[in-house]
Simulated scan of single mutants.
Amino acid sequence: MNKALKIPHDGTVLVSDGRKALFLKNQGDDVFPNLQVERVLQAPDNPQTSQQGTDKPGRTFGFDQRAAVGQTDWHQRAEQKFAAEVAEMVNQACSTGDLKAIVVAAPPRTLAELRTHFSEAVRRKIMAEVNKDLTKHPVYEIEQHLVPGA
């Protein structure tokens, strides 16, 4: 990770994947961060795809051709919806002035989904994006991943 990353006092760190989001606030300074959990969001349980969609995939017809339509991945859909909800919370915090600066850490697919939903004001406040799933790590390890040697 970038050793020059300096999270300002009261800066926000969003650590998210498709099912969990941690909102951390830096209570320390930009040299010695002290991340504290502000909020934890969990997506509701998502049953197996076989329990959600029992019908076989559909087919389309057109121009004397047939084509199969792939089965919907309900888990991916749920993760996309969760990422949109998380991004909306970040957008809301930005619009109320509660967001000073933000670092976003998420696996690639979630990071891409978050980007599509962030407002332009949030995009301007993003200090760094970390392509890594850190949701299962304790806070002190998250600090070490973001600011090595701190």
Rank of each mutant, 00 (worst) to 15 (best):
I142C: 04
F32R: 14
A21F: 12
K132G: 00
E113F: 01
H145C: 06
M1W: 09
L41F: 09
R77C: 09
Q76F: 07
P148S: 05
A43R: 13
D17G: 01
G62A: 04
G70C: 05
N26L: 13
L134A: 12
P108F: 12
N91P: 04
D55V: 15
P148K: 10
G62F: 06
V103Q: 09
L41C: 00
K136I: 00
V122M: 01
C94P: 00
T135Y: 09
A78M: 06
N34C: 08
N131I: 03
A101R: 09
A68L: 05
Q52N: 08
K56M: 04
H137Y: 09
H75K: 06
E143N: 10
D45N: 12
H9R: 03
H75R: 11
E129P: 03
P33L: 11
A106T: 07
P57C: 12
G11I: 00
A93P: 01
A21Y: 15
P33I: 07
F61L: 07
K100F: 05
R19V: 01
V90L: 05
D30L: 07
R77L: 10
N34Y: 11
A4T: 08
D30R: 14
G28W: 07
F61N: 02
L146H: 02
D64A: 13
P8Q: 12
L111G: 01
V40L: 08
P8S: 11
N34M: 07
L99N: 08
E38K: 15
T96I: 11
V103F: 08
M127A: 14
E38P: 07
D17A: 04
T54C: 05
E113I: 02
P33Q: 05
Q27V: 06
Y140D: 10
I142W: 03
N91M: 08
T72A: 07
D73S: 03
P47Y: 07
P8E: 05
F82P: 04
H75M: 00
A93V: 02
R59T: 12
A4R: 05
K81F: 14
V147F: 14
N46W: 04
Y140N: 06
A43L: 09
T60C: 04
L22N: 02
K56D: 02
A150D: 02
F118W: 14
A101T: 06
D133H: 02
Y140W: 10
E120Q: 13
R123Q: 03
A68R: 10
K3R: 11
Q48C: 03
V69F: 10
A78T: 01
E143K: 13
E88W: 05
G62E: 10
Y140G: 01
V69P: 01
V147Q: 13
A105C: 12
I7H: 02
L24E: 03
